[in-house]
Computed example of a mutant assay.
Amino acid sequence: MPTPQRVHVTHTYRSDPATVFAKLSEHENLGPVLGAKIDRVKDGDTSRNGVGSTRSLKIGPLPAFHETTTVSEPNTLIEYAISQGSPLKGHWGRQVLTQTTDGGTLLDYTIGFDAPVPGLAALVGKILQKNIAKGIGRLAP
């Protein structure tokens, strides 16, 4: 997944991977994590939050855009991509969950993207890095 701008955050939860996955996959739970207003646009092809499920994100004064789940492997992996309405190019997100030795969960969250306007990708990256690092711990215990 080549893109010049990357955001990378890790976080360890006390909760097991099934609990963390359930929180991460539920679109509406991500608002405080991403600093966005999130609305569900469409359920997934075979499950509510699975592949094909789409959310609308509105961040500050920017126009809303859609993200669609492209991979959903219960309790281990969620991948998504912007599917409509963003000035970002090649945007993707990957959330990998690994059980820790004490029964908790390590989340490894990476986002990649580019932008057609010079400097925009770096600016968006700094904002996302700050928002996610600050908000990711609010998701689950």
Rank of each mutant, 00 (worst) to 15 (best):
P2I: 14
T3H: 11
Q5P: 00
Q5M: 15
V7Y: 04
V9K: 00
V9P: 06
V9G: 03
V9L: 09
T12W: 11
Y13R: 00
P17Q: 05
A18K: 10
V20Q: 10
V20I: 09
F21W: 13
F21K: 02
A22L: 07
A22T: 15
K23I: 07
E26S: 14
E28I: 10
N29T: 06
G35D: 11
I38W: 04
R40A: 12
V41I: 11
V41L: 01
K42L: 10
K42R: 15
D45I: 08
G50Q: 02
G52M: 05
S53E: 10
R55Q: 07
S56L: 11
L57S: 12
I59L: 10
G60K: 09
G60T: 05
G60N: 12
L62D: 12
P63T: 13
A64C: 05
E67C: 01
V71G: 13
S72T: 02
P74A: 09
E79V: 02
E79F: 03
Y80P: 01
Y80V: 08
A81G: 07
I82N: 01
G85K: 01
G85M: 03
K89P: 01
K89I: 13
H91L: 03
H91Y: 12
Q95P: 02
L97H: 02
L97K: 00
T98W: 04
Q99H: 09
Q99Y: 05
T100F: 05
G104A: 06
G104E: 12
T105C: 06
L106F: 03
D108N: 08
Y109Q: 14
Y109D: 15
Y109N: 14
T110S: 09
T110F: 03
I111G: 00
I111R: 08
F113M: 05
F113C: 00
P116D: 11
P116Q: 07
V117A: 13
P118A: 11
P118K: 05
L120I: 12
A122T: 15
V124L: 04
I127Y: 03
I127C: 01
L128C: 09
L128K: 03
Q129C: 07
I132G: 04
K134P: 14
G135Y: 01
G137C: 08
G137P: 05
R138T: 15
A140F: 10
